[in-house]
Design a protein around this nucleic acid. Sequence first.
DNA 1: TATTGTTATACTCTATAACTATA
DNA 2: TATAGTTATAGAGTATAACAATA
Lengths: 145, 145
Amino acid sequence: MSNDRDPGPQLSRRLAYLFKHAFIELERLHEEHLTPVGVTARELGLLLFLDGREPSSQQDAARRLGVDRTTMVELLDAMEHKGLVGRVTDPSDRRRNVIDLTTAGRVKLAEARHASDDAERELLAELDDGEDALLRSLLQRIAAN
Amino acid sequence: MSNDRDPGPQLSRRLAYLFKHAFIELERLHEEHLTPVGVTARELGLLLFLDGREPSSQQDAARRLGVDRTTMVELLDAMEHKGLVGRVTDPSDRRRNVIDLTTAGRVKLAEARHASDDAERELLAELDDGEDALLRSLLQRIAAN
DNA sequence: TATTGTTATACTCTATAACTATA
DNA sequence: TATAGTTATAGAGTATAACAATA
């Protein structure tokens, strides 16, 4: 009996299989490259979201990142504990917490972004620069619809 | 406050975001198109795996589909109950179950494959045929490495 | 009355451990 | 002793419900 993981051509040529494979593999590469930096992929997502943007409430951030607000609480707890973000109650609406990047958060973001770039390059190692750009533009058009 | 789900350009141009979006959206489209057919995406995966292939043991199928053997038990329970697959104890090793597609399973596979084709077309609606083929070949090269 | 952040609880999905029958 | 299938249990991850503070 073969020990292989190949599910055969009927399945492995399906778009769902191909996207799942790329997604899972890129997640694995991100974990590999981000662990030494000390942030998770989701934390990098929030850092990228916060960078170069108006300060945002927790719920706005949660909505835009596609997590619910209870998950956002723990995510921010961890990041605040690491000193990457700060929570400040909005003076104009004291129910809201405004989230902002700390200086340490910006430094960590730069590191994490480089780690993510490495993960992307590793996934696309077989593609040349033109193919890399082409893939991104096709994916962006899919996401835009 | 905007009600949008846009996480901003810093994140939405990242490869991880783009792949995740395509993957999630295609999953959603599959659920939409497969529900009327009466199979799940994972069941379609197993049908595709079994089609045109030597009969396979449960564990071999599980390994190749990337699920563990306990999950395979419930998956096969459901499919056997629907009459799509049969379990036959292997005469040469009575510990093993050989899984085979029933006639009803082959009919259902054809329906489900069409539904999946529809889901793929809907995801790639913005792309022309050449771009569709290009995307698939790029993804296949990524998966092959 | 509605909304934000929070906490506690429930649910879903998958993995782990343990059992049986076969080898 | 080891492996295939099965079942029961545990764990991670996420969503739902309920609560206090504020609007």
